[in-house]
Design a protein around this nucleic acid. Sequence first.
DNA 1: ATCATTTGTTTCTTATAGGAAACTTTTCCA
DNA 2: TGGAAAAGTTTCCTATAAGAAACAAATGAT
Lengths: 199, 199
Amino acid sequence: MDPVSQSEDEIADASDPDHLGKMIREARLRKGWTLEEAGKAAGIGRSTLSKIENSQTRPSFDIVRRLTKALELKTPQLFVQSGPSDISGRRDVTFAGGGEMQETPTYSHELLCTELTSKRMFPYISTIKARDVSEFESWIRHRGEEFMFVISGELTFFTEHYRPLPMKAGDSVYYDSGMGHGCISTGEEDAKVLWVSLE
Amino acid sequence: MDPVSQSEDEIADASDPDHLGKMIREARLRKGWTLEEAGKAAGIGRSTLSKIENSQTRPSFDIVRRLTKALELKTPQLFVQSGPSDISGRRDVTFAGGGEMQETPTYSHELLCTELTSKRMFPYISTIKARDVSEFESWIRHRGEEFMFVISGELTFFTEHYRPLPMKAGDSVYYDSGMGHGCISTGEEDAKVLWVSLE
DNA sequence: ATCATTTGTTTCTTATAGGAAACTTTTCCA
DNA sequence: TGGAAAAGTTTCCTATAAGAAACAAATGAT
């Protein structure tokens, strides 16, 4: 953290017109780069970078994109703007079995921590009913990333481009949810998995 | 996903100079808005928006930010550009106990799915050694959001501004990790929790 | 079909972003 | 200390973003 930020662990300050510039300077210094070096890495001039960091210009999106890449900036933070979202300084508990139920023919989802509406990850527990492999339907597919952890039971996890993956309690998998995916319980009883979905 | 695939559920295509414009038009139409309406919502002119959508201009970051807000666009997608990140079209499995171990005096972390380096969520299992409450040290605190799920055992989860939270297997909590937080095992044996951290 | 209205595109103009170079400040070594 | 080199800022100029208005295409009503 750098000289600019007030408290040593400040949360991205909203409604600050200098937000973008501060973030970028912070990221550059974190890398220990000079304006020249950072500019070169991002393919922009050092004068431009100076002006951006000091909020003396409104850079184009393209320039910002190049900087985020060179400086390995976390992009969502750049968009922080209007007041902290409702997660700021908050927590949301769901006790076992206390989630919001959502039923489908094959799955039974229990949505967790649904009080915090502006959270970015979506955790839920699915009970996958034991059934025959032949019943497998179509791929689920949606932009983003997903993490799955098997809580109990045995199942087979399918994804496009890969061979079926047998999994049991304690196993986990992380995957691009843009790939078709799905799973079926292969054990005697229903399987229980925890999913965390992003985006 | 490779550059060749053109499925109808196409993943954000990298190295496409028209990427930004396409995303924005898509988002606008999803809302069923005209250029006029969307422009008004974002506070920009309809001609400007037209040019952005058709990639006839390189909009300023500020304009893009206003659009993302008005159109409720997922921001990280906008930055997709140079080659798909290594998660694209991939999956990464970790079998029970097969994670990368990382030891600290109090915690024992097992990092999951560490093959995919560009993933955005960081899942790990922690074993929290059973011990006395008095040993509680200092807050852990870092930008971002976190989800925690208790796999086994009993523990107390602490966060600033809230009272201690007793938790047991199956319970979960989602919180702003910018708040100080930490937990200790309160049961007979070590507690096991799954954490998923973002940002 | 004809005309009116609405939606999207293309000028046209002005304000400004971005880079080169001049200038200033800081660093650091003799 | 002083003076040179490096880092950062400001100035100046050109290319272009952004909005207004003119234009064109699509939609809809009679």
